[in-house]
Simulated scan of single mutants.
Amino acid sequence: MAPATRLFLRSAMLMLLLLLVATHRQATGAVLATELRCQCPKTIPRINFEEIQSLKVTTPGPHCTQTEVIATLKNGQDVCLNPEAPLVQRIIQKILKPTRPS
């Protein structure tokens, strides 16, 4: 078999293997390749603090060049908040502020 043919077959087998692994990971709910990019293409500037169940702040990195603030609401919905909005910054500070024992 010619070297070019062997190289082509190896490349095709590698692509097939990668496709199978990606398909398996999607089926099992493991990390997807789509999480390697920004998760918040659109943000909202404000939200009622009482509606927030939890808050996740993702700092800039190789996956995304901007800070992302994702709030999980009490109804289970995830919303992306604008990290530059003053209200969002106050919410983050309130959550990060240590509580004093009574």
Rank of each mutant, 00 (worst) to 15 (best):
A2I: 05
Q53D: 13
A12G: 05
Q53Y: 11
K74D: 02
E51I: 02
T23D: 13
C38D: 09
A22V: 15
S11G: 09
Q93R: 14
Q77F: 02
T5V: 10
L19V: 15
L20Y: 04
F49T: 06
Q66A: 11
C80V: 07
L73P: 01
V69S: 07
T5S: 15
K56W: 05
H24N: 13
L20V: 09
H24L: 15
F49L: 13
K94T: 04
L87C: 06
G61K: 03
L81C: 08
L36F: 15
S102I: 11
R100K: 13
A22C: 02
C64H: 07
L96Q: 11
V79T: 10
L14H: 09
T72K: 01
L17S: 15
P83L: 06
L73F: 01
C64G: 00
P3Y: 09
H24Q: 12
R10I: 10
Q26I: 13
G76D: 08
A30L: 09
R25D: 12
P60M: 10
I52A: 00
L19I: 02
P41A: 05
L14R: 08
R37E: 12
E51K: 09
C40F: 08
A27N: 14
V79M: 00
R90I: 12
V57F: 05
M15K: 08
H63G: 09
P86K: 05
P83W: 02
L87F: 10
L73S: 00
I92T: 04
L16W: 09
A85Y: 05
I91P: 01
L17F: 13
A22M: 10
I70R: 04
I52V: 13
L18M: 11
P3E: 06
T65C: 12
F8M: 15
L7T: 04
T67C: 02
L55P: 03
A27W: 12
T59F: 14
K56P: 01
E50N: 14
C64R: 06
Q26W: 10
P101W: 07
S54A: 12
T99H: 12
A85R: 02
L55C: 05
K97P: 12
F8I: 05
K74H: 06
G61P: 02
I91L: 02
K56F: 07
C80F: 11
L73Q: 09
L55A: 00
R25S: 07
A22K: 12
N48E: 15
L87V: 06
A71V: 07
R37I: 04
S54P: 06
P86D: 09
V88E: 08
P45H: 09
A2S: 15
G76P: 07
R25I: 13
T58L: 13
I70L: 08
E84I: 01
E84N: 13
M13E: 14
T58M: 12
L9E: 07
T99I: 00
T67N: 04
L17R: 09
L55Q: 05
D78H: 14
L17K: 01
V69K: 01
Q26V: 12
P83Q: 00
